[in-house]
């Protein structure tokens, strides 16, 4: 395993930036405009990493409004590198991958995913609302990462997990040294410490039945889009045409199943007109139907929906976590 002394962090980012669009963590989101030292410290941004592979507003193609012809967008060729992405956010992208690649492949998602390298960082300071270990991942979950890193005292130690990952480490090789045995041991210790720190719940998804009392919590739901927009696994979208003067664009934008307009049909009929129906649909999709389809929960335990719900509706409570 390789190690980088934190004193060389600036140079490390600089070297990577020569070849990749380096995105890292800011308070709000993943951005190319980040603070090298802070990015390493912030647990996770308010927004999840999903927008790198599934942007909130994404052009599908352009069109010419006069001739009524479609103009296909050029493909993006530069490579993005997600620096210090946390296990829960990578997990989110793994879950999105299942949806977007099932049956019909979503080329926009697939292209972005192919063009992105994930340099993940073990989470060493889980927050109050984290519950990743209750949805079967850990603060050192690596699947989907190309490089897995752990911050150990004055150094960051790296493990390349894929060919792409090896290439990335090759690129910054001049700054790296071999990790000491102590550091490797310490990393393992940090992983376990973090894992123990995350609060573990015994979720009881069998209580999520159609007529369950748990849905009564929807009485206080504001039906805003916070939980869905911040969620690393929510992937509902809308497709709309945006017109300018002579040209326009068909774009897809995030949509939220919590909005009443989401299912409103042109006839005026709305199969999910009430907040209860919408909340139930969202939670059951994540913990019952997704499980039926893909044999796992569409939840990474990042806790964003719990932290940011304006009226303190807690997923943990809904799932019967005590």
């Amino acid at each position: 395993m390789k190690a980088l002394d934190k004193a060389n962090l600036d140079k490390f980012v600089e070297l990577l930036s020569e070849e990749f669009n380096v995105y890292s963590i800011t308070d709000t989101d993943f951005s190319t405009d980040f603070d090298n030292n802070k990015a390493l410290e912030i647990l996770k941004p308010i927004k999840s990493a999903k927008e790198i592979v599934f942007p909130q507003t994404e052009p599908l193609f352009k069109f010419d409004l006069v001739g009524k012809e479609i103009v296909v967008n050029e493909k993006q060729n530069s490579t993005n590198l997600m620096l210090w992405i946390k296990p829960c956010d990578v997990r989110g992208i793994n879950i999105l991958k299942k949806v977007f690649e099932k049956d019909v492949k979503d080329v926009y998602f697939a292209n972005k995913l192919n063009n992105t390298i994930f340099v993940g960082l073990a989470c060493n300071n889980p927050s109050r609302n984290c519950f990743c270990t209750s949805v079967s991942i850990t603060p050192y979950y690596k699947e989907g990462m190309d490089v897995f890193a752990t911050s150990v005292n004055g150094a960051i130690i790296f493990e390349a997990l894929t060919e792409k990952g090896k290439e990335v480490l090759e690129k910054v090789n001049s700054l790296l040294r071999d990790a000491t045995k102590d550091e490797v041991e310490k990393a393992k210790e940090i992983h376990l410490q973090a894992e123990n720190k995350v609060r573990r719940y015994n979720f009881n998804t069998s209580r999520l039945t159609w007529d369950s009392d748990v849905w009564r919590i929807s009485e206080i739901c504001l039906s805003c889009g916070i939980c869905t927009y911040l969620c690393p696994t929510c992937h509902c979208f809308d497709i709309i045409d945006e017109n300018y003067v002579y040209e326009g664009e068909r774009i897809r934008i995030w949509d939220s199943c919590m909005y009443s307009e989401y299912t409103l049909q042109a006839s005026g009929h709305n199969p999910r007109a009430y907040r209860l129906q919408r909340l139930r649909n969202r939670i059951m999709h994540k913990f019952v139907w997704f499980k039926e389809m893909f044999d796992e929960y569409a939840c990474t335990g990042c806790g964003r929906c719990v932290s940011y719900c304006p009226v303190n509706i807690s997923l943990i409570e809904i799932l019967g976590g005590v």
């Binding site: 805003c224 889009g225 927009y229 304006p310």
Partner: peptide, 12 residues
């Protein structure tokens, strides 16, 4: 620029 248009401000 940061707004994600979750409409929470409107709904609350």
């Amino acid at each position: 620029e940061k707004c994600i248009r979750c409409y929470a401000c409107r709904n609350v």
